[in-house]
C-alpha cells in the first residue's frame, strides 16, 4: 500500500462575502498522485501553479472541494491522528517560527503536543534533535533573530522531524537560501531521508534543487498535472515544453549571454 494517495483532488478558491459573491477560481483540477514510503516526490511548477495549495491540502490545513487524500489508506481529514506523521518545512524560516519563543520552545511544541515526556527526557530529545540537524545544545535558549536564515531553517527541520513523522512537505524549503546554505540543507535533508526513512513532497520551482533530492518528478501547471517522470534520467532527458518552461524559470548559476526571444 502506498504511503500517500491523492485521488482526483480539485480545489477552488471563492471569495464569499456577506452580499457580494465573486466567481470562484480553480486552483487544482483533478490531481491524482501516489507516493511510496521513503521516497521523494519533486513537485515542480511555476508560481501560481497550485503547488503550495496542494501542499496545504496534504497538511490538512485546507480541505479540497473534491477528491480525497489517503494516508496509509485512511482519509487524512477523518483520521487527524495522522497529523503526527505529516509535518512541514516552509520557505521563509523567519515567518515560520514565533519570534517570541526560543529555539528550544519552538522544537518542543510538537513534542509536548504528541508525546508525554518528562522534562529530562524532553531536554534530552531536544539536544538529540539539534545535533541531528547540525546545531549545538547552546542554541536551545537563543531567539529566532539570533540565527541566520540557514540555521533557522535547520531549527524548522528539527521541529518537523521531532515526532518521527513519515512524510515531510518541503514547501520551497530551500528557495530563499543562498547557494552554500542551499547545498548544505539539501545534504541534511538527504541524510535525514536515509537515516529516518522519511518520504518528502518537495515543492519547488528550482529544477536543480529538485534533481539533487527527488526520486520522481511531477509538473503542475494551472492546477493540472502535465508531466510525470518516474526517474531522474527520464526527467533530465525530457524535452517537452513544460520541462523547458520550468528550466527557463530559474536563473543559471553561471550566467552566460542569453538571447532574448521576441
Amino acid at each position: 500500500m502506498s504511503l500517500l494517495q491523492i485521488k482526483h483532488v480539485s480545489h477552488r478558491y471563492g471569495n464569499q462575502r456577506f452580499l457580494s459573491r465573486q466567481p470562484e477560481q480553480t486552483v487544482l483540477q483533478d490531481v491524482s498522485l501516489t507516493l511510496e514510503a521513503g521516497t521523494c516526490l519533486g513537485l515542480l511548477g511555476r508560481s501560481g501553479a497550485g503547488k503550495s495549495t496542494l501542499g496545504r491540502i496534504l497538511l490538512g490545513l485546507e480541505r479540497p472541494k473534491e477528491g480525497q487524500v489517503l494516508f496509509e489508506g485512511q482519509d487524512i481529514y477523518q483520521n487527524l491522528s495522522s497529523r503526527q506523521d505529516i509535518q512541514v518545512v516552509f520557505q521563509d524560516s523567519f515567518a515560520a517560527v514565533n519570534p517570541k519563543l526560543t529555539a528550544g520552545q519552538i522544537i518542543a511544541e510538537p513534542l509536548t503536543n504528541f508525546l508525554r515526556l518528562t522534562p529530562d527526557a524532553l531536554e534530552e530529545r531536544l539536544i538529540t534533535l539539534l545535533e541531528q540537524v547540525g546545531l549545538a545544545e547552546a542554541d536551545l535558549t537563543k531567539y529566532p533573530h539570533q540565527f541566520s536564515g540557514g540555521q533557522l531553517q535547520r531549527i524548522c527541520i528539527a521541529r518537523a522531524i521531532a515526532t518521527n513523522p513519515k512524510l515531510i512537505i518541503l514547501d520551497e524549503a530551500v528557495s530563499s537560501l543562498d547557494m552554500v546554505n542551499k547545498a548544505m540543507i539539501l545534504d541534511l535533508l538527504r541524510e535525514l531521508k536515509a537515516t529516518l526513512g522519511l518520504a518528502y513532497v518537495f515543492i519547488t520551482h528550482d529544477v536543480q534543487a529538485a534533481q539533487t533530492l527527488s526520486d520522481r518528478f511531477v509538473i503542475l501547471d494551472h492546477g493540472q498535472l502535465v508531466g510525470d517522470y518516474p526517474t531522474l534520467e527520464s526527467f533530465t532527458e525530457a524535452t517537452d515544453r513544460h520541462v523547458e518552461a520550468i528550466r527557463q524559470a530559474v536563473l543559471a548559476t553561471h550566467p552566460r549571454y542569453r538571447t532574448i526571444r521576441k
Partner: peptide, 8 residues
C-alpha cells in the same frame, strides 16, 4: 500553520 500541523 506550522503550529496547526504540529497538533497544537
Amino acid at each position: 500553520a506550522a503550529a496547526r500541523v504540529n497538533g497544537s
